[in-house]
């Protein structure tokens, strides 16, 4: 998979992929159909593994020739050694986790850098919905309150605090909307929060 294919399929991932150095060792926690690793291994010669629980996505990874470890992320990353990876990705998965803090600590343990993204609850249509007295339903949070897999709601400001708490330093934080960076009022106008993190002292 080349960059223009990735950009067409997932502009948000294409934006993030730019941050990942070539020839590095990458772990993609919650890798879905493996599209990011597919791009990273063909275009940037990265090696590594994806973690995914859903059968259909594990098969999709296998079809893409991506290394996938079928596992529930809630069980943590005990399969991986300390500092085993240059970069750990956790893209659009964190909001589905029950044990967010232990997972982030594990991400900090196994990687030197991390990139974490999640739907920004502070995105203005979400705020408007709440003002109108309803839980937000949007393109980035497309579920009803009773069937959503997204059990954690955070804004860009909320996440920075937790990142610091688990030993990750925020190198850069951007808000994206439809794959493009939002420069003005990011915590209002960005539907996806993306954090570039580095292990403190690394």
């Amino acid at each position: 998979m080349n960059f223009s294919d990735l950009n067409r399929l997932r502009p948000d991932l294409a934006f993030i992929a730019d941050w990942i150095k070539a020839d590095t060792h990458v772990l993609d926690v919650g890798c879905g159909d493996g599209v990011m690793l597919d791009y990273l291994q063909t275009d940037k010669r990265c090696v590594g593994y994806g973690i995914e629980i859903a059968d259909d996505k594990v098969l999709a990874c296998a079809t893409r020739h991506v290394n996938v470890i079928q596992q529930d992320m809630e069980r943590g990353l005990s399969m991986f050694d300390d500092n085993a990876f240059d970069t750990v990705l956790c893209l659009n998965s964190l909001q589905m986790m029950k044990h967010v803090e232990p997972l982030l600590r594990d991400i900090a343990r196994v990687g030197r850098d991390a990139i974490v993204s999640f739907p920004n609850f502070g995105y203005w249509p979400h705020r408007t919905a709440l003002l109108m007295g309803k839980m937000p339903v949007s393109k980035s949070l497309p579920y009803q309150w009773y069937d959503t897999p997204n059990v954690r709601c955070a804004t860009i400001y909320d996440f920075s605090d937790l990142a610091n708490e688990v030993g990750l330093e925020v190198v850069e934080c951007v808000a994206l909307h439809e794959g493009k960076q939002v420069h003005v009022l990011p915590n209002w106008r960005g539907s996806l929060a993306v954090f570039r993190l580095q292990k403190r002292g690394a």
Partner: peptide
């Protein structure tokens, strides 16, 4: 994985 081998697990 500790040996950095290419591995998939289902």
């Amino acid at each position: 994985i500790s040996n950095k081998r290419t591995v998939s697990y289902a």
